[in-house]
């Protein structure tokens, strides 16, 4: 195949996958993994709460975390100031599973490098290129353990 045609096919392939950076995400044509690949780096790794949520989360996002109300705006209103008040807060993603319209993220959140932190699993449901529903389970990492393997 001629180089120009290969390059054109390459560009079409790239254009079909939503970019992980700024700008609105498409309204359809995403796989669940596309959404995971867009949301995870922005939110968990870079802590860009507003950008991650406004790009990848539906406004009427259904919330199952008992400490939060429904909706994207409520989530941003809680998370954004939390990150601003805790600039050393960090999340580490250990594993991601993607299956049908769900993806699961196993992670640790720490307020700073000396904090053993909390373990969490976030489960997110995707529809039309947006996260529409969120469940989670969170547990503080205890000081001691019956095994030497760590929680992660």
């Amino acid at each position: 195949m001629r180089p120009a045609r290969l390059a054109a096919i390459g560009l079409l392939a790239i254009a079909a996958v939503p970019a992980a950076a700024a700008g609105p995400a498409p309204a359809k044509g995403c796989t669940t993994r596309d959404v995971a690949n867009g949301f995870i780096p922005l939110f968990y790794e870079q802590g860009k709460v507003r950008e991650a949520y406004e790009t990848w989360v539906a406004e009427d996002y259904k919330q199952h975390n008992p400490n939060a109300t429904d909706g994207r705006d409520a989530a941003i209103a809680f998370l954004e100031p939390f990150y601003q008040r805790n600039p050393t807060h960090k999340m580490t993603v250990y594993r991601v599973l993607v299956d049908g319209d769900l993806f699961a993220v196993h992670l640790r959140g720490q307020t700073g490098p000396d904090d053993p932190g909390a373990a969490a699993v976030d489960i997110l449901r995707v529809k039309d290129c947006r996260i529409v529903e969120h469940w989670d389970v969170t547990q503080r990492v205890p000081e001691s353990s019956a095994n030497p393997n760590g929680m992660f």
């Binding site: 008992p66 400490n67 373990a119 969490a120 699993v121 469940w135 389970v137 547990q139 929680m151």
Partner: peptide, 19 residues
Amino acid sequence: HWDVMQEVPETAKNANSMF
């Protein structure tokens, strides 16, 4: 095996249950 466990609280800020 890994797990994360959280007690289901008596009240919540939404009506969706944890599940």
